[in-house]
Structure formats: structure tokens, C-alpha cells
Nucleic acid binder design. Structure first.
Lengths: 344, 344
DNA sequence: CTGAAAGCGCTTACAG
DNA sequence: CTGAAAGCGCTTACAG
């Protein structure tokens, strides 16, 4: 070994102890700060550790302590700014609380989701945050005694903690905005209606009609799936009808993009010929002209609340199950207007 | 314990072995598939494991084997679609290769970056992927004998692997596009010029002027930092000059957003009064009108190449250092036009 | 083909 | 105040 070379293997506490002339027990106490060590010994051990570039093996520590400082995070699509923002919020808060984040993107697949959860179990994470795409995930993790918090969507109501957005209230206020402008043919473009997000947004939409005493038309609800291009085609069909809607409520940012593109392609000027409100405010909505009126969810705050709930759960496994509901507010821009004359 | 309840603690290989009536050694061999086990014994052990919901502790396994199956990933800003796409690509490829991803967002801070790297070392990851914000990170990891690949930016040329975009060539072609249209007062709005990304994009911009035999004007290069709002103010100043540029080359997606907003605020119609080309194509650029002509980097492919390089490095620690250069192509949309008459 | 033993790198009661 | 010993959950030469 040339001088200046580092040893090929990483220093262990054994080497630190030997170099400092103490036992591993003492070295451990000096390094962790738990238990008694003579001050001079402590300093000596720490100096040696520093000079050897010693970094304690967290996995060995966790194995011994039977407790880990990492959490698993499972989202549906990192390329979607909503999930990316969520991950950003979680990451920042995890760091503040000294947790490490294991992240997996399941691409919306239940199979991949379960696979990733198994990896998290194998790595003995302290807890898991998941935007679930199936009910299995939470029951599986619960059976493995891993604390889990469902985020954004809820599959196992009452069985585990959840941090959600108040989808129904927000959707109702967005729909009311359009009703108040005089729209009657208001389409809801939505991905699906079985998950809590879809179900509650639909419920809010319907509640707004009921509250306004306006009957509503089933054919105005179109289930457009998850793919932008497939959704664009569905919107083409919707706008191509003999009596197309005068307004559209797009239930998420991907669907809003599909509506935006389809409207441009079919020359439906927004807002003159078509009003648009989106659920989930993302960057492009304030860059286009007119800006898109949207419900802002604050994914970063959602992520922070989720971590906070998970940490509480880790610390108090038996405390009552909790659901946290975050409100979302409507950001008005220029994409809505009264319906064109004679078209309401 | 009520019947149907699971034991509070998770099953270990010891319990699997005892229940199956074999030794831990045999149980291990049966479960991992390494070493000889009688077929019937193997099946029995596996059945028991399944029925106990046994999930081997990966941390204990790695401790014993002195090898891990997780990689650390360190990016600058998950809320930026470029880094989010990068993380998405890495995540997908990591899964395919049976690696788990530990992700940290350093928010562009060198201190946080080093902190996160220390956590990765403590968790004994098999390797690290980083979009570096300082030179320390790679040398630190190298000293700890952790394979590292610098992604997107390079700080330690030649000292560790890197997977980069050919910034200079792409920037040159973008600038040439504007020169060919007849622009002479072409501003470069850039974050900084010390990192490889900034330096190479500047070099490409200058090379285009040189190749066209057009002298270029230092005052057209504005260093606008990382913040959208600060950048917007810088662009306000740029466009407010007596002889403002007729075209802007924005060196990343955040700066392009700043230019877009500033142009709207100052009524610089794009492309009639101001042409715009962006480095880094993100979603909003194809949604606005006119669409923004941009250099498409494909962050997902970048992430995939990075993982692939890291895995090779893990498998062959001593093979020669490699730099992978990905090309990026210009996507023409509607944001460029010849300069206004008499304004070139 | 199987099992006893050692050991990965830690921490922590416990004895002195 | 310190150190020897045990043990977290695994895997793997090695002896039989």
C-alpha cells in the first residue's frame, strides 16, 4: 500500500477501538454518547474515528437495535408533477427528522406496488408512505407490522392512517364556479370513479348540481383513463357531439392537459367557447394563455403531513387510527367565462 | 393472543427452521437456493416460510455478505421536472436490476449534499448516483470506496464516471438556429458558468457565433441564478435596455419560464418581437402558444444510462473511468422567427 | 445431504 | 468508569 492510500476496507468500530486503545464497548459509548465514558477517552476515541474516516454501519446498528431510521415511499408516477412534488415534500421532511427515504415508483401497477412493498419489508423500514393503487398493499404491510399511511387516495378506510385532500369540497366549489357563471352543460372528465379521489371528485361535482337545483346529465361524465393521448381522444369525442358541453371540469392535471390540447385542436377557444377548470394546479397552468383556473392541492404540504403522521404512528403504534384531511383552494385564472349566448 | 392474530414479532429464519424441523443452515440453503438441500426438505421449508409470512431480513443478509442491493441517488430538486424525470428513469431501471433506491433531494445545497452522502455511506449502499453541486461529494465517496457516477454535471473530471448530455453541441445548434434566422442580438440567459452544464452551454453559444463569423457581445450574456423570480427580474432588465435582444437562448427550463413570463409582462410578443429557444424541453413548452422550441434532453434515458454505468462500476471497480455523453436534439416549435425589421 | 460453529458490525445489560 | 460477553438475523465454509 503506497503511503497516502486508504485501506481497501472501511474502518470498523473494532479498528477504532484498537487504535484508541479501548474496548469496542467503550468506543461505542464514546461514539453514540450513550452511557458513561471518561471525557478524555471520549475525545480520543472521536479523534481516532475522524482520522480513520469511520462511518458507523447503520444497518448493523439497526439490526442490533431492531429499529430502523428509514422509511419507504411508494408513488404512482414520478414524471407527474403531483407525485414529484409529493416526493419532494416527503424528502425534505424526512431529512429534518433524520429519516432516510427509500423511494419506488410503481407506475400505477398493483403488482409492482406489492413487489416494492416486499422490498421495503425486507429492508425493515420503520414505516411506509404509499399512494395506493390497490387495497392489498396496506393490509400486507399491516400484517407485517409495518406502520403505513395512505396518501392522496384511501383504500383501507379505518384500517390505517390516511392523509388526504378534501376532494369533495374542492370539486364542489369548482363545479359551483361554473354553475354560477351560467353553465349547465358541464362535463366531468375523470380517470375512474372507484378510487376515493375519483369517487369524491364525482360526488362533489354532483353535490354542486344538487345544491344549485340543476338536474345533471350522466352523459356529461366521461371516464377517460390515465393516458394523455387516450384521454385526448375521449375529449375529441366529447366535444364533437351535436350539443357539446360549454364547460369542462378536468379531474386531474393529466386530463386537464388532454382537454387543453383537444380544445386547441378542435378550435374550441378557451374561455369564449369552452370554460375549463382543473383539479390539481401544476406549473403549465399559469404559463398558458389564458391561465387555467385550478384547484391547488399543495403536494409538498401533503407530503409533509404524511411524514408527520407516519412518525407519530411509528412512535405510538397503538394510538387510534387517524385521517387527516387537507383542504384545497380554487385559484382563479382566465379559463372560465359565461357560456356562449344561446349555448347554455 | 386471539386465534387468527399474528405474532407481534416478525418470523425469523430460526423460527422457520424450527417449525420445519431442520437447522438454520439448511433452512437458509433451502430459501436462498444456494447449496444442497434434499428436494422434499426444500419444499417443506419453503412452505413453512410462506405460511409464517417470512420475509428474510435483507439488512442482516447484506451485513453477512458485505454487499448491498441498494443504491443512493442524490438530486438537486425533485420539483423540477428534469430531476423528477431523472429519478423516474433511475427508479425504473433500478427495479429491473433488483436494486432498491434511496433518494435524497439536496435542494442545491452542498452541505445537505454531503450530509445525504454520509447517510448513504452509513447505510452501506452499493453505489451512488449524484447530480453534484460540489466537487467534495465524489471525492468523499471515492475515499469511502463507494462507486459513484456523476450525472448531468461533472465536477471531478477523470476521477469518476460521468453520464452527461453533450451540452456544447446542443447549445451550438440552438444558437445557430437563431443566427440562421438573421438574429445578431441573441441573449444567453444562464444560471452560472462554472459548472460543466453552464460552461459548456456558454461554449456552444460562443462557438456558434465564431462558426458564423459573427462577433458577439458580452453584455448579452446574463447570469440569472436559480430562482424563477430573481431570473424574471434579470430578464426584465435585459428586455428593458435601449437596444434589447431580438432573441433569447434560455439555458434551462426554469430560466425559460422566467423569460416566458417576463416577455408576457412586457408585451414582447413571441416570436414576432422576441424569439426564444430553451435548453431542456419540459411539458409546458408544448402546451403554450406558440410552443417553445427547445433542446430535448430525455432525462429518463439519462437516468437509465447512469444506472447502467453504476452497475458496471460496481461489478468492475477497477475498470477504466468512463464518460458517457448523450446527445440532445432540437425540437422546433413556434417560438422563433426572423428578427423584426430594422431591429437586427 | 445436513448441522454446529463462526462471524458480518454493531449495542447493551451486566459484572467488576 | 470500563470491558467481556451475548446477541440482533442472517450465510457459509467445514466436518461429518
Amino acid at each position: 500500500m503506497k503511503s497516502g492510500d486508504r485501506p481497501a476496507r472501511r474502518a470498523t468500530i473494532k479498528e477504532v477501538a484498537e487504535t484508541a486503545g479501548v474496548s469496542r464497548s467503550t468506543a461505542s459509548r464514546a461514539l453514540t454518547g450513550h452511557g458513561y465514558v471518561a471525557p478524555q477517552v471520549r475525545d480520543r476515541v472521536r479523534d481516532v474515528a475522524r482520522s480513520l474516516g469511520y462511518v458507523p454501519d447503520a444497518t448493523a446498528r439497526h439490526l442490533r437495535q431492531q429499529a430502523s431510521r428509514s422509511i419507504g415511499v411508494l408513488v404512482s408516477d414520478l414524471s407527474n408533477p403531483f407525485y414529484a412534488g409529493l416526493a419532494a415534500g416527503i424528502s425534505a421532511q424526512a431529512r429534518k427528522r433524520q429519516y432516510t427515504m427509500m423511494l419506488a415508483d410503481d407506475g400505477g401497477s398493483p403488482e409492482v406496488e406489492v413487489e416494492a412493498a416486499e422490498q421495503f419489508v425486507a429492508l425493515r423500514v420503520a414505516g411506509v408512505l404509499v399512494t395506493p393503487v390497490s387495497a392489498e398493499i396496506s393490509t400486507y404491510l399491516a400484517r407485517q407490522h409495518i406502520p403505513v399511511v395512505e396518501v392522496d387516495r384511501r383504500f383501507s378506510a379505518g384500517a390505517c392512517d390516511a392523509v388526504l385532500v378534501d376532494n369533495q369540497t374542492a370539486a364542489q366549489s369548482a363545479t359551483r364556479e361554473l354553475l354560477d357563471l351560467g353553465h349547465r352543460r358541464i362535463a366531468l372528465v375523470i380517470d375512474e370513479m372507484h378510487w376515493t379521489t375519483g369517487r369524491d371528485r364525482l360526488a362533489g361535482y354532483q353535490a354542486a348540481f344538487a345544491a344549485a337545483g340543476v338536474p345533471f346529465d350522466d352523459s356529461m361524465v366521461v371516464s377517460a383513463g390515465w393516458d394523455v393521448d387516450a384521454a385526448r381522444i375521449a375529449v375529441h369525442k366529447l366535444l364533437g357531439q351535436p350539443r357539446p358541453p360549454t364547460a369542462v371540469f378536468a379531474a386531474n392535471n393529466v386530463l386537464a392537459e388532454a382537454v387543453w390540447r383537444a380544445a386547441a385542436e378542435l378550435n374550441f377557444a378557451i374561455p369564449q367557447r369552452l370554460s375549463l377548470v382543473a383539479f390539481d394546479d401544476v406549473a403549465w397552468m399559469s404559463l398558458v394563455t389564458p391561465g387555467v383556473t385550478a384547484i391547488a392541492q399543495d403536494p409538498v404540504a401533503l407530503g409533509e403531513a404524511a411524514i408527520s403522521q407516519l412518525v407519530e404512528r411509528i412512535q405510538a403504534p397503538l394510538s387510534p387510527v387517524r385521517t387527516v384531511l387537507l383542504s384545497a383552494s380554487l385559484v382563479s385564472r382566465g379559463s372560465t367565462a359565461p357560456p356562449p349566448r344561446g349555448r347554455r
